[in-house]
Amino acid sequence: MSIKTTLMTSIGQKLLVATSGLVMFLLFLVPHMGGNVLFLFGPDLFNSYAHHLHQLVPVVIGIELLMLASISVHMATAVRLVLKNRQAADHRLSQKSSAERSLAAKLMPVSGVMIFIFIIKHLLDFKFYEKAKTTLHGIETYDVYAMVLSRFQSDPIHLLFYVGFMIAVGLHLSHALQSALQTYGLYVPREGSKIKLASAVIGWGMAATFAIIPVVAFIK
């Protein structure tokens, strides 16, 4: 069995989803959250962070390409799996009910699609958007802080959109993290699992942290 055939098996496909997901989580989501938190400490710190990030363009582009690859693999594989599973389960006409699966698990495809929509919107909002300039310690740089403020201030609908979509992130991560570990072969017990608990805490914690920024921006 070559690596390629292995990756096409059911477990191989799950490993692909888990791995691409974990890459995005560790190389993008975690640093991104770390950066965003700086917003809470005022314009100087936040703009300085943005400035430094811009100095690292090759690295950033590298990571961006990796993210593009990961999200493509993640979505393509997930869509394939969901379609195959729909077919395999044969739900038609059945009164089948579930006893164990969590809401998060059940909504994985939905939360996944929501996150995708959010990413596009988020990129349009902040990446492909004309940014104002400012001076920081005598150096001219983008005023990212002001941009964030301007996007949320006096726009409750926009705020609701962001906060609402963070619920999707929380849902998705809370199942994704534990599921990925079980797929890697780390036993995640059904009942009383610390890994399950950690997965939920990390997932919802991150979602909440992300959601705080637009809320703060709105209030300011």
């Binding site: 059911s10 477990i11 496909q13 799950k14 389960a89 164990e100 699966r101 698990a105 199942h175 534990q178």
Partner: peptide
């Protein structure tokens, strides 16, 4: 034609 495991433990 069996499906894939999504670790939902049903």
């Amino acid at each position: 034609g069996f499906g894939n495991c999504s670790n939902e433990y049903e």
